[in-house]
Amino acid sequence: MKIEEIKNQLEKKKLENNLRTLKIFKEEDLNLSSNDYLGIGQDKKLKEEFLEKYRDKILFSSSSSRLITGNYKIIRDLEERLNKIYGKSSLVMNSGFSANKTIIETFYNKNSLIITDRLNHSSIYAGILESGAKVVRYRHLDIAHLETVLEKYKKDYDDILVVTETVYSMDGDIAPIKKIVDLKKKYKFNLMVDEAHSYGVFGYGIAYEENLLKDIDFLTIPLGKGGGSIGSYIICDEIYREYLINFGREIIYTTSLPPVNALWNLFILEKMEEFSDRRKKLWELIDFSKEKIKELEINAICDSQIMALIIGDNKKADIISKNLRDKGYVVYSIKSPTVAKGTERIRVGLNPNISKEEIFNFLKEFKNELNSIF
């Protein structure tokens, strides 16, 4: 791109009230934008326990890809533990984006059909683009529409992948995975499920809790949310794992995660069942938030730990989020085209470290801002 074109594109973003900037928030403010849904990423006691256990084993660089010297012992220990929990083979990746993209671009091509929920993450669409496969989007969480698409194309393709997330990042709504699995049994497609926003909140994930692992070909578990970390797990059959190691470009050519991250991820994985009190407190906060949203007559979506407070305009969303930040709340506007026009919002990520009083006070402030700006 030429400089003039770059300037024009940035100016267009400004005029649309949609220019992104990098911000720093004050640590003393109430952080309502974090995806650390169990509050483990910032837990000082967990950090101290981790350091006490692993202090002498911590290394900060793997210094190569896993095919060279980056396949250190602790990363294999982590995978062995995952294998026992999920009953399948596992592969540790550097990020959820990398895991999703790599699966799709490695296994699917121009002869494949990929059917994706229209609101699936950008990483999934990046993989689809690289694969060259034909893509069809079905209406968000609309299982009847998914079946219509399958019925239409079943005779034209014998290599079909259906991709869904479990909990969606903008509305926090939950996909009916069991119904999709039922369709798989009928139409014989491959199924890929992303558990980015459900891991931790639902223990080992919704697929695990609902006993659906055997019916899912590729399960990705990104760790930057409820996992309180970085990286991602791929859960799949051993033959898929072997193929990824041999043909997955981001595995072959990327330096693997530092050992310190694998140690932390193993530490958290082994404690996942101990976090039941955190999950209980989180769901109590979710139910409380639903009650207060109804009481204050706020237009919002709150089906899980993700709360979407609808404003409906890019400029107004920016103004309200700035005013709330000035009052000590770390919130940011989510604007179109990231979300559909007319549904611009403030997105809140709940966690058990937020008190009921704090969330109620915030909702009242949001309501006041909403009333004053309209």
Rank of each mutant, 00 (worst) to 15 (best):
S229F: 06
I306F: 12
V167S: 08
Y157D: 01
I346S: 06
S33E: 00
E79N: 03
D318P: 04
D217K: 07
K73F: 04
K73S: 05
L244M: 14
I24A: 06
N299I: 15
I128G: 08
E369L: 11
V162Y: 04
R81K: 15
F247P: 00
L146P: 14
K294S: 12
A144F: 14
L370C: 03
L30F: 10
G226S: 05
Q9L: 13
N17M: 04
K134Q: 11
I75A: 07
E195W: 07
K214L: 11
E210K: 14
L263Q: 04
R20A: 14
I104W: 05
E291R: 10
V339S: 06
I354C: 08
K101Q: 11
I174K: 13
E165N: 13
D173M: 15
L324V: 04
D159M: 00
I310W: 01
V149G: 10
L266G: 01
D318V: 08
D158V: 13
L363E: 02
I180C: 02
K281L: 12
F374N: 11
D142E: 05
K110Y: 07
Y332W: 00
I104L: 08
I174D: 05
V201F: 08
Y157E: 01
E295N: 12
S34D: 05
Y240N: 10
S90D: 06
F288M: 09
T21N: 10
R241E: 04
Y332G: 14
K2D: 13
I221L: 02
E357P: 02
I124Y: 02
W264V: 05
F275W: 05
I252K: 03
D303S: 09
S95L: 11
K13L: 15
A300S: 10
I115H: 04
Q305G: 09
K7I: 15
E48P: 11
G312P: 13
E358R: 01
S98E: 13
I359N: 01
F288C: 07
F366H: 05
K134S: 12
V163L: 06
D326W: 00
R279H: 04
K188S: 13
T220S: 07
N299L: 15
F288T: 05
E274T: 06
S372R: 14
G203Q: 06
S304N: 02
K101W: 04
S355C: 14
L150P: 00
